[in-house]
Amino acid sequence: MSVPARRIRWSAVLDHSILIIGSLIMILPVVMLVQMASTTDLHTTKFGPGWVFGDQLPVNFEKAMFKADGFSGENTGLRMLYNSMILGFGFAIGKIVIGMMAAYAIVYFRLKFATLAFWVIFTTLLLPLEVRILPSYEIVQKLGMLNTYQGLIIPLIASATATFFFRQYFRSIPEELVEAARIDGAGPIKFFIDILVPLSRTMIAAMFIIMFVYGWNQYLWPTMITTDEGMYTLVRGIKQITQTLEGTNLPEYGRSNLLAIIAILPPVLIVIFFQSWFVKGLTESDK
């Protein structure tokens, strides 16, 4: 029996072409940054980005991580990386812990003022930090928290996205679970720690990824709150970098582009390696 000739599916060729073009559009700009970080600043200043990679990555890496500009000499890449880590982790952990606790109280307890608490908390979903940025700044200033990690992190936590997310999740957990736990003699704290938290592991992981990326990528708030160069995060430091590109005789393209790459690397790696959790967290948090 003859095998039927394989049909060439032009529609599939078209589909793949569109996807390949789309992927290239997403990748090439960042490849371009890497290429520019691999050549000498002189080369880049003359010719701009190209297709040939140079051998300057280690040199530029050294400069990016350990050289500082500005007056204090404190904003080295290493220092900014450290600050970004604190912001990313502090924000994600703080938000998840506080959100889970609040959601637990709302879902699992008979509260007199439950509806009121719900509305007080969920109104915060309506107004992002950006619209109340100046008064928030003034209050942080009044509390003496400028240029501190608390001042950087806590006001960002003042929105209930995680609480809302965990509330939705807790409500989807079968009623019988808490009934069974009560019959087994578990009190509210035991139930929370022994059952609810372990059960929410995947949700916590998913939320952590979203929140870490969100915290790490904050720009406007750190720009306002941190004026002390030792407190700069990588993302906030980018502004400083682009400003020093102006006016100098030989702009430090290698160093600044490498800093930009270092700034995106941790969140990008997390998103790629924990892709399924990330997608779950993203698509389920916003419902």
Partner: peptide, 29 residues
Amino acid sequence: MKRAGFSDRWLPVLFLLPQLTIIFIFFYW
């Protein structure tokens, strides 16, 4: 709220307190 919710009075308030404090200071104010 769950049908079989716990009926403690102060515990949920304790759980809600961090969230509410932050919200009042850094959102409503």
